[in-house]
Computed example of a mutant assay.
Amino acid sequence: MREIELEQAIDLLFTLLGEASDSLRISKLRVRVLFGTDDAAKTGLYLGYFSTLCGMVTPFLENTFDMKDYHVSADADFDADHTEWAFTVFCSIRPLRLALILLRHGKKLYRMYKNLTKKEEAIENE
């Protein structure tokens, strides 16, 4: 993902969460990421980016939602050549409110989805 696309994705994530704050309930959130790339310097950068993102998102989630159980962990494996991750969330949202939010931001979400699937296809075809 290019830096601009990542910035747009984070902005859209905050927008969606902000709009859903009155109707979304997050009861459990678990995120585990183990970064690994062919280049140790790149692995360290990704770990730093993720830690920065967590530093921005976690206070927002704590202040916006009543989360009872959450845990985020990140680590780097400088010998690995791939990244492993796991994400678990238990949440509930009012369906009508979700539909309105998705309709309002549907074009942006669809463009991001198409962009990501194009990149995955390009990687698979290499």
Rank of each mutant, 00 (worst) to 15 (best):
L12C: 00
L98I: 04
E7H: 10
V57F: 06
D77N: 12
A122N: 10
L109D: 01
A20W: 00
D81T: 15
L29S: 03
V31I: 15
H82N: 09
L53K: 01
T15F: 05
L24R: 00
A122I: 07
L13F: 09
G36P: 00
C91G: 14
F35V: 11
L34D: 07
F78A: 08
F87D: 07
N115F: 08
D22W: 05
V89S: 11
A80V: 03
R2C: 11
H71P: 00
L13M: 13
E124R: 14
L13R: 05
I123Y: 15
R25C: 05
L53R: 02
G55S: 05
L47F: 08
E124Q: 14
K42P: 00
H105D: 05
F14W: 03
R32P: 01
E126N: 11
D77I: 04
R2A: 10
L6C: 12
E3M: 08
F50G: 04
E19N: 07
I93R: 01
N115V: 04
S21R: 13
K68Y: 05
L102P: 02
R94D: 15
L24I: 02
K114R: 14
C91H: 14
A99V: 11
E62K: 11
T117C: 05
F35E: 03
L16Q: 00
D39M: 03
A99G: 06
D81S: 14
L13K: 06
L6D: 12
F60N: 00
K28C: 08
F60M: 02
T117H: 06
L116H: 11
F35T: 04
E124F: 12
H71T: 07
G44A: 12
F87S: 06
D81I: 13
Y113T: 05
G18F: 03
L98C: 08
G106Q: 07
V89D: 03
T88Y: 13
L47W: 04
L29R: 01
E121H: 11
R97D: 15
T64V: 04
S51D: 10
L100M: 13
D22M: 09
R97K: 15
D77C: 06
E121G: 06
T64Q: 03
H105I: 02
A20E: 02
H71A: 13
R104W: 06
F90V: 15
L116I: 12
S21P: 00
I26H: 01
G48A: 07
R30C: 04
S73T: 12
F35L: 10
L96N: 14
M112E: 05
D75T: 10
H71E: 13
T64C: 02
P95V: 09
V72Q: 07
I123H: 12
